[in-house]
Amino acid sequence: MDEDQFKAPESYRDMEKMKIEIWSDVMCPFCYIGKRKFESALDRFPGKEHIEIEWKSFQLNPAMKTEPGKSINDYLAEVKGWTREYAEEANNHVTRIAGEVGLEYNMDKAVVANSFDAHRFVQFAKTKGKGDAAEEQLFKAYFTDGKNTADHETLVNLGEQIGLDGDEIREVLGSNKFAEAVRKDVYEAQQVGARGVPFFVLDRKYAVSGAQQPETFLGALEKSFGEWELKNPSPVIAYAEGASCTPEGECN
Protein backbone atom coordinates (compact mmCIF):
# COMPACT_ATOMS: atom_id res chain seq x y z
CA MET A 1 0.00 0.00 0.00
CA ASP A 2 1.26 3.48 -0.87
CA GLU A 3 2.65 5.11 2.29
CA ASP A 4 0.96 8.38 1.30
CA GLN A 5 -2.37 6.76 2.20
CA PHE A 6 -1.27 6.82 5.83
CA LYS A 7 -0.74 10.58 5.95
CA ALA A 8 -3.36 12.60 7.79
CA PRO A 9 -5.29 15.12 5.69
CA GLU A 10 -3.64 18.55 5.66
CA SER A 11 -6.54 20.12 7.56
CA TYR A 12 -5.90 17.85 10.56
CA ARG A 13 -2.14 18.22 10.84
CA ASP A 14 -2.43 21.65 12.43
CA MET A 15 -5.23 20.85 14.86
CA GLU A 16 -5.73 23.15 17.81
CA LYS A 17 -3.13 22.57 20.49
CA MET A 18 -3.08 23.11 24.23
CA LYS A 19 -0.92 26.11 25.02
CA ILE A 20 1.72 26.24 27.72
CA GLU A 21 3.13 29.68 28.50
CA ILE A 22 6.51 29.99 30.16
CA TRP A 23 7.60 33.25 31.77
CA SER A 24 11.37 33.57 32.08
CA ASP A 25 14.34 35.92 32.08
CA VAL A 26 17.61 35.19 30.30
CA MET A 27 19.64 36.03 33.44
CA CYS A 28 17.67 33.57 35.61
CA PRO A 29 19.79 30.43 36.20
CA PHE A 30 16.79 28.34 37.23
CA CYS A 31 14.92 29.26 34.04
CA TYR A 32 17.45 27.35 31.92
CA ILE A 33 17.41 24.47 34.39
CA GLY A 34 13.59 24.55 34.42
CA LYS A 35 13.56 24.46 30.63
CA ARG A 36 15.58 21.25 30.63
CA LYS A 37 13.44 19.61 33.31
CA PHE A 38 10.23 20.58 31.52
CA GLU A 39 11.61 19.25 28.23
CA SER A 40 12.44 15.97 29.94
CA ALA A 41 8.81 15.67 31.05
CA LEU A 42 7.46 16.67 27.66
CA ASP A 43 9.58 14.01 25.95
CA ARG A 44 7.80 11.39 28.08
CA PHE A 45 4.34 12.83 27.52
CA PRO A 46 2.28 10.84 24.95
CA GLY A 47 0.35 13.87 23.72
CA LYS A 48 3.35 16.14 23.17
CA GLU A 49 2.48 16.72 19.51
CA HIS A 50 -0.65 18.50 20.72
CA ILE A 51 1.25 20.92 22.96
CA GLU A 52 2.17 24.46 21.92
CA ILE A 53 4.88 26.30 23.88
CA GLU A 54 5.00 30.08 24.11
CA TRP A 55 7.83 31.89 25.87
CA LYS A 56 6.85 35.04 27.73
CA SER A 57 8.96 37.96 28.91
CA PHE A 58 9.77 38.69 32.54
CA GLN A 59 12.48 41.02 33.85
CA LEU A 60 13.96 40.23 37.24
CA ASN A 61 15.67 43.62 37.36
CA PRO A 62 14.35 46.11 34.78
CA ALA A 63 16.71 48.81 36.10
CA MET A 64 19.85 46.72 35.66
CA LYS A 65 22.67 48.50 33.83
CA THR A 66 24.70 46.58 31.28
CA GLU A 67 28.25 46.41 32.65
CA PRO A 68 30.39 43.95 30.66
CA GLY A 69 33.43 44.48 32.89
CA LYS A 70 31.68 43.65 36.17
CA SER A 71 31.78 40.20 37.76
CA ILE A 72 28.38 38.60 38.31
CA ASN A 73 29.53 37.82 41.85
CA ASP A 74 30.24 41.49 42.51
CA TYR A 75 26.88 42.43 41.03
CA LEU A 76 24.96 39.99 43.23
CA ALA A 77 26.87 41.08 46.30
CA GLU A 78 25.92 44.70 45.60
CA VAL A 79 22.22 44.26 44.83
CA LYS A 80 21.47 41.57 47.41
CA GLY A 81 23.72 42.75 50.21
CA TRP A 82 25.70 39.52 50.20
CA THR A 83 29.41 39.08 50.72
CA ARG A 84 31.31 38.31 47.54
CA GLU A 85 32.22 34.92 48.96
CA TYR A 86 28.57 34.07 49.55
CA ALA A 87 27.65 35.21 46.02
CA GLU A 88 30.37 32.98 44.59
CA GLU A 89 29.18 29.99 46.61
CA ALA A 90 25.58 30.62 45.49
CA ASN A 91 26.69 30.57 41.87
CA ASN A 92 28.77 27.44 42.43
CA HIS A 93 25.68 25.80 43.94
CA VAL A 94 23.46 26.62 40.95
CA THR A 95 26.25 25.50 38.61
CA ARG A 96 26.21 22.08 40.26
CA ILE A 97 22.42 21.85 39.86
CA ALA A 98 22.72 22.82 36.20
CA GLY A 99 25.28 20.08 35.69
CA GLU A 100 22.79 17.51 36.96
CA VAL A 101 20.56 18.21 33.94
CA GLY A 102 23.43 18.33 31.45
CA LEU A 103 24.02 22.08 31.36
CA GLU A 104 27.41 23.78 31.58
CA TYR A 105 27.36 27.03 33.55
CA ASN A 106 30.41 29.29 33.49
CA MET A 107 29.24 31.96 35.90
CA ASP A 108 32.68 33.55 36.09
CA LYS A 109 32.20 34.52 32.43
CA ALA A 110 28.60 35.79 32.74
CA VAL A 111 28.11 39.37 31.55
CA VAL A 112 25.96 41.71 33.64
CA ALA A 113 23.40 42.83 31.05
CA ASN A 114 19.92 44.33 30.98
CA SER A 115 17.59 41.82 29.33
CA PHE A 116 15.02 44.12 27.71
CA ASP A 117 16.44 43.95 24.18
CA ALA A 118 16.99 40.20 24.54
CA HIS A 119 13.27 39.92 25.28
CA ARG A 120 12.44 42.04 22.22
CA PHE A 121 14.64 39.66 20.23
CA VAL A 122 12.61 36.69 21.50
CA GLN A 123 9.33 38.46 20.71
CA PHE A 124 10.52 38.96 17.14
CA ALA A 125 11.70 35.35 16.90
CA LYS A 126 8.25 34.19 18.02
CA THR A 127 6.70 35.82 14.95
CA LYS A 128 8.94 33.56 12.85
CA GLY A 129 8.15 30.39 14.79
CA LYS A 130 11.58 30.47 16.47
CA GLY A 131 10.69 31.42 20.04
CA ASP A 132 11.99 28.26 21.69
CA ALA A 133 15.17 28.27 19.62
CA ALA A 134 15.79 31.91 20.52
CA GLU A 135 15.40 31.18 24.24
CA GLU A 136 17.82 28.27 23.99
CA GLN A 137 20.38 30.43 22.19
CA LEU A 138 20.10 33.20 24.79
CA PHE A 139 20.46 30.88 27.76
CA LYS A 140 23.52 29.21 26.29
CA ALA A 141 25.03 32.55 25.34
CA TYR A 142 24.57 33.95 28.82
CA PHE A 143 25.32 31.00 31.09
CA THR A 144 27.76 28.93 29.03
CA ASP A 145 29.49 31.20 26.53
CA GLY A 146 29.72 34.42 28.54
CA LYS A 147 28.29 36.62 25.80
CA ASN A 148 26.78 40.06 26.24
CA THR A 149 23.10 39.40 25.60
CA ALA A 150 22.32 43.13 25.55
CA ASP A 151 24.68 43.71 22.63
CA HIS A 152 22.78 44.06 19.36
CA GLU A 153 25.37 42.39 17.15
CA THR A 154 25.51 39.47 19.56
CA LEU A 155 21.75 39.10 19.24
CA VAL A 156 22.00 39.35 15.45
CA ASN A 157 24.57 36.56 15.44
CA LEU A 158 22.42 34.39 17.71
CA GLY A 159 19.43 34.98 15.47
CA GLU A 160 21.30 34.09 12.31
CA GLN A 161 22.36 30.81 13.92
CA ILE A 162 18.69 29.78 14.13
CA GLY A 163 17.79 30.94 10.64
CA LEU A 164 16.58 34.48 11.26
CA ASP A 165 17.48 37.35 8.96
CA GLY A 166 20.24 39.50 10.44
CA ASP A 167 19.10 42.71 8.77
CA GLU A 168 15.58 42.22 10.12
CA ILE A 169 16.95 41.75 13.63
CA ARG A 170 19.05 44.91 13.33
CA GLU A 171 16.00 46.83 12.15
CA VAL A 172 13.94 45.58 15.11
CA LEU A 173 16.63 46.30 17.70
CA GLY A 174 17.36 49.71 16.22
CA SER A 175 13.73 50.69 16.75
CA ASN A 176 11.19 50.38 19.54
CA LYS A 177 9.49 47.37 17.98
CA PHE A 178 8.21 44.64 20.30
CA ALA A 179 8.78 46.80 23.37
CA GLU A 180 5.05 46.84 24.03
CA ALA A 181 4.88 43.04 23.64
CA VAL A 182 7.52 42.70 26.37
CA ARG A 183 5.62 45.06 28.68
CA LYS A 184 2.38 43.21 28.01
CA ASP A 185 3.98 39.90 29.04
CA VAL A 186 5.30 41.48 32.23
CA TYR A 187 1.82 42.79 33.01
CA GLU A 188 0.26 39.38 32.28
CA ALA A 189 2.73 37.76 34.65
CA GLN A 190 1.22 39.80 37.47
CA GLN A 191 -2.29 38.79 36.42
CA VAL A 192 -1.53 35.06 36.48
CA GLY A 193 0.26 35.25 39.82
CA ALA A 194 3.88 35.01 38.72
CA ARG A 195 6.11 36.55 41.35
CA GLY A 196 9.27 34.93 40.06
CA VAL A 197 10.52 32.80 37.20
CA PRO A 198 10.43 30.28 35.70
CA PHE A 199 6.65 30.21 35.80
CA PHE A 200 4.70 27.71 33.71
CA VAL A 201 0.99 28.19 32.95
CA LEU A 202 -0.83 25.26 31.38
CA ASP A 203 -3.99 26.06 29.42
CA ARG A 204 -4.46 29.18 31.59
CA LYS A 205 -5.76 26.85 34.32
CA TYR A 206 -2.79 25.35 36.13
CA ALA A 207 0.52 26.89 37.15
CA VAL A 208 3.85 25.36 38.05
CA SER A 209 6.32 27.71 39.72
CA GLY A 210 10.05 27.14 39.62
CA ALA A 211 12.38 24.52 38.17
CA GLN A 212 10.39 21.53 39.43
CA GLN A 213 11.35 17.91 38.88
CA PRO A 214 10.24 16.32 35.58
CA GLU A 215 7.71 14.15 37.45
CA THR A 216 5.94 17.28 38.71
CA PHE A 217 5.78 18.73 35.22
CA LEU A 218 4.58 15.41 33.82
CA GLY A 219 1.77 15.23 36.38
CA ALA A 220 0.69 18.78 35.53
CA LEU A 221 0.78 17.95 31.83
CA GLU A 222 -1.36 14.86 32.27
CA LYS A 223 -3.96 16.63 34.39
CA SER A 224 -4.27 19.78 32.28
CA PHE A 225 -4.18 17.94 28.96
CA GLY A 226 -6.77 15.40 30.12
CA GLU A 227 -9.18 18.22 30.89
CA TRP A 228 -8.32 20.09 27.71
CA GLU A 229 -8.83 16.97 25.60
CA LEU A 230 -12.36 16.47 26.95
CA LYS A 231 -13.27 19.90 25.59
CA ASN A 232 -11.29 19.48 22.37
CA PRO A 233 -11.85 15.92 21.12
CA SER A 234 -9.77 14.91 18.14
CA PRO A 235 -11.66 14.04 14.97
CA VAL A 236 -11.51 10.42 13.81
CA ILE A 237 -9.33 10.31 10.73
CA ALA A 238 -9.47 7.53 8.13
CA TYR A 239 -5.84 6.94 7.26
CA ALA A 240 -6.53 4.10 4.81
CA GLU A 241 -9.49 2.33 3.36
CA GLY A 242 -9.86 -1.39 2.72
CA ALA A 243 -12.45 -4.18 2.59
CA SER A 244 -15.34 -3.43 4.96
CA CYS A 245 -19.05 -4.01 5.63
CA THR A 246 -21.80 -1.42 6.11
CA PRO A 247 -24.86 -1.57 8.42
CA GLU A 248 -26.92 -2.22 5.28
CA GLY A 249 -25.21 -5.58 4.84
CA GLU A 250 -23.02 -4.61 1.93
CA CYS A 251 -19.50 -5.99 2.09
CA ASN A 252 -16.80 -5.13 -0.43
Rank of each mutant, 00 (worst) to 15 (best):
L218C: 05
M27L: 11
G131K: 08
S24A: 14
K35Y: 11
Q190A: 08
G174D: 13
P62Q: 08
P62F: 12
Q123A: 14
L173A: 02
N176Q: 15
H93S: 01
H152G: 00
D151K: 03
P247K: 07
P9K: 01
R204C: 01
K109S: 08
E78Q: 01
S244C: 05
A134T: 10
A207G: 02
E85S: 02
Q213H: 07
I162V: 10
A90Q: 15
D117T: 13
E104G: 00
G210W: 15
C251N: 11
V201M: 08
A113I: 09
L158D: 09
G34Q: 03
Y12Q: 04
D185M: 10
D108W: 07
S57V: 05
G81E: 03
Q5W: 15
A87N: 11
A181N: 13
R195M: 12
F38G: 07
F143N: 01
D74S: 07
K56C: 07
P247N: 02
I51A: 03
G242E: 05
A41W: 13
A150R: 06
F45L: 00
R183P: 11
F143H: 12
R183Y: 14
K130I: 12
L155S: 05
N176T: 15
I237N: 00
D185F: 12
S224L: 02
L218A: 05
F139V: 08
G146Y: 11
P9E: 05
L173H: 04
L155K: 05
H50F: 13
F121P: 07
T144C: 03
Y142G: 01
G174A: 09
S234P: 04
S209I: 09
N91F: 15
F45K: 00
S115P: 12
K19P: 08
E21W: 04
E78L: 00
P233T: 05
Y32G: 01
R170I: 10
L173E: 07
N232I: 07
L173F: 11
K126T: 02
G249K: 11
D74E: 14
G146A: 00
F217K: 01
